[in-house]
Amino acid sequence: MGQNTITVTDSGFADAIASETPTLVDFWAEWCGPCKVMDGPLNEIAGENSGKLTVAKLNVDENPATMGSYTVMSIPTLILFQGGEEKQRFVGARSKEQLISELADYLQ
């Protein structure tokens, strides 16, 4: 797990995404190969946008409630939250560059 990302769980999830600073939640699992591919890019994005964006990791095996309430049905899924609301959702692995351009509106 990257040093720049935080871990979130079912308990306290609502608080974790409540901030006006955007929070990007990475829904992942140990058995998911494409999820591992995202570890490096997400850690870098978190490090490079410290203070502008929080990157949080949620293990779907251990946190079924959150997975269910946001109907995550494929991983990796990334959901961007701001003020407790879902703003954007990305399903499937993607490159760091692609993700940065997709997040551009929230990284200013």
């Binding site: 190969g33 779907v60 095996d61 995550v72 049905m73 494929s74 991983i75």
Partner: peptide, 17 residues
């Protein structure tokens, strides 16, 4: 509906069903 019930990878997405 890809990612919302349509998939081409059982090992990736089976868990959600």
């Amino acid at each position: 509906l890809r990612g919302y019930g349509v998939s081409a990878c059982a090992t990736c997405d089976g868990f959600f069903f």
